[in-house]
Nucleic acid binder design. Structure first.
Length: 300
DNA sequence: GACATTTGACCTAA
DNA sequence: TTAGGTCAAATGTC
């Protein structure tokens, strides 16, 4: 699938507004499709078959257009304008790493560490430019298996910053890293910054599963329009299904205790993401509605 | 016992 | 020199 993103030549506020409105409309259509047809995902709309997945792609395309326009519109030297057409494929969603693969290459740590790193060698990342950043009131499962490798209290920060790397860093040389920092107490707000892309086999790209999109339980996700974030970002988080009894979803085995807080779900009910398969569609629809309402240009 | 997390020490860029 | 990022031994959990 190569859905070309057709960027308007005018990157002004008007164009961005139109893109946001288009995305909202698509989301509304998707909501109708999902509400009235839970079997085939197909419903007659205006005489044509509207497939939910297409709508999802349209929404993504619209939001992506807006992001690109925002980034391109900024006169920043460090803003890398893509020279090649951006496609939906460029926004790689992520799936759960297959459990089977997780069982492979046990004991890789010492082997790789001893062979590729000097003792206490280069600890700084090569690039400080984040690939993707999001801010949310809860920590959602991004679909990847992460390993926490550090925690640090930064200066002028009230909370620890937590450092995670892809669990397949060694067996598949996946260099994806994320930093999670709580930035606000009440309401709780967490900023997750992703670095590099997942290269592990678990990553899925254009073959977005509707289930992935449906299972989204975060009504307050804020996409970062930070200037230094590349236009060709990946979409590193894979929405996961909320469950009535289940708390917020974390892709790591256990998120840092001081970071986790959710008014809807008690902290001590956290479960590993791979155990969560149920979808709370009501919650998701609430999210969709919130998104639709929030996508006015004022809130933007 | 295996694996994940914690945490203090270490390294490096700014 | 300092702050942010990472390592790796110790500890915890299943």
């Amino acid at each position: 699938m190569e859905n070309q993103l057709l960027l308007p030549t005018n990157y002004g506020k008007k164009a961005m507004e139109e893109e946001l409105i288009r995305g909202r409309d698509m989301a509304n259509q998707l909501l109708e499709v999902l509400t009235f047809d839970d079997k085939s995902n197909i419903r007659e709309v205006k005489g044509s078959n509207i497939v939910a997945e297409d709508l999802v792609l349209e929404v993504l395309k619209s939001l992506t257009n807006t992001l690109l326009m925002l980034n391109n519109g900024k006169e920043s030297n460090d803003m890398a304008v893509p020279t090649t057409p951006t496609t939906i494929r460029d926004f790689s969603f992520s799936s759960n790493c297959p459990k089977m693969e997780e069982d492979l290459d046990r004991g890789y740590k010492k082997f790789e560490t001893l062979n590729t790193k000097n003792p206490k060698g280069s600890n700084k990342r090569k690039s400080s430019a984040p690939t993707w950043e999001k801010t949310a009131s809860i920590l959602i499962d991004d679909g990847h298996t992460w390993r926490k490798y550090g925690q640090k209290m930064l200066t002028n920060a009230k909370y620890f910053r937590n450092y995670y790397r892809c669990a397949h860093m060694y067996d598949q040389h996946c260099e994806a890293i994320k930093h999670v920092q709580r930035i606000q107490e009440n309401p709780p707000l967490y900023r997750t910054t992703y670095y590099d892309h997942h290269t592990c086999k678990s990553s899925y790209h254009s073959d977005i599963k509707l289930e992935s999109i449906l299972c989204y339980d975060d009504s307050s996700i804020l996409l970062s329009f930070d200037n230094n974030i590349s236009s060709e970002q990946e979409f590193p988080f894979r929405p996961r299904p909320p469950s009535p009894q289940l708390p917020l979803l974390a892709s790591t085995k256990e998120e840092p205790k001081e970071e986790i807080h959710n008014d809807r779900f008690p902290r001590d009910q956290l479960l590993p993401s791979e155990n969560l398969q149920l979808c709370d569609f009501d919650v998701y629809f609430d999210y969709l509605r919130d998104v639709s309402e929030l996508s006015s240009i004022e809130s933007f």
